[in-house]
Amino acid sequence: MPGSGSRSGVSYDARGLVEPHADMPDNIEVDGSRARFDATDLTIRQINMALRRLIYNDGITDVTVLNPSSKHSLAVGILKRCRIHFEGSPGWFACGLIDGPEVTINGRVGWSVAENMMSGVVMIERSAGSLTGAAIRGGDLIIKGDVGARTGIDQKGGTIIVTGDVGINTGFMMQRGRQIICVNAGMNLGDSMYDGAIYVGGKVRSLGVDCVPGDWTEADTELIERKFRIHGLGDPPEFQKFVCGKQLHNYDALEPSERKLVIH
């Protein structure tokens, strides 16, 4: 292992893999291109190691993880097309940094699910914590419940759909992408947003700085109807649209390198 070993006795790895228990789990059931395993007695590292080995090395395209037991940072950094199903509730930072997987979670999730997702679909059957979809860059994140504060903070692309309520500071510093909130939004919606669109089906407690009502277009109707149809969410409610008022940030004054950062 590169860089491993130290006087402290704690296993160290230059890549940051510090959890010492690194034995591959022996309870994986494989059936063709599908696999499943029970995560009850496994460490976070073991679960992620099993996912990586199955998906990258063994050609498995569909993995079911039973009993994730609110363990943190599961299924992070999977950069390949595949299906992952969690039967139970993962903890914080689930499915972060993914690029390609289609994930279903039959449970709740903690903070920062799908943080920095590049592409893929994450569908959560119950509620999610704060910072849901933080800095998401692409793909669809669907939460069939309520979510906490700062949903889609620093969002740079992608679509976040919440069938319930969202908390305070939703869409804070949002730069691109779309949020579809089917019920109510808390205080400071879209505060300091640069771009993107936030659709709200219920009441908004208050708008943040430079977040203003936007003009509804046929493209908005097409987007909402398409997303509800493909994700089986039923008939969409009536939405209000909110966008950036463009008074706080000035695109014309940005240097090219800054402009690129805003784009992605």
Binding site: P101, S119, G120, R137, G138, D140, R176, I230
Partner: peptide, 16 residues
């Protein structure tokens, strides 16, 4: 070429 039943992340790709 994209995950899921639509164009997924390409939704944000436009001609610049």
């Amino acid at each position: 070429a994209t995950p899921g039943p639509d164009i997924n992340w390409l939704e944000d790709i436009t001609l610049l």
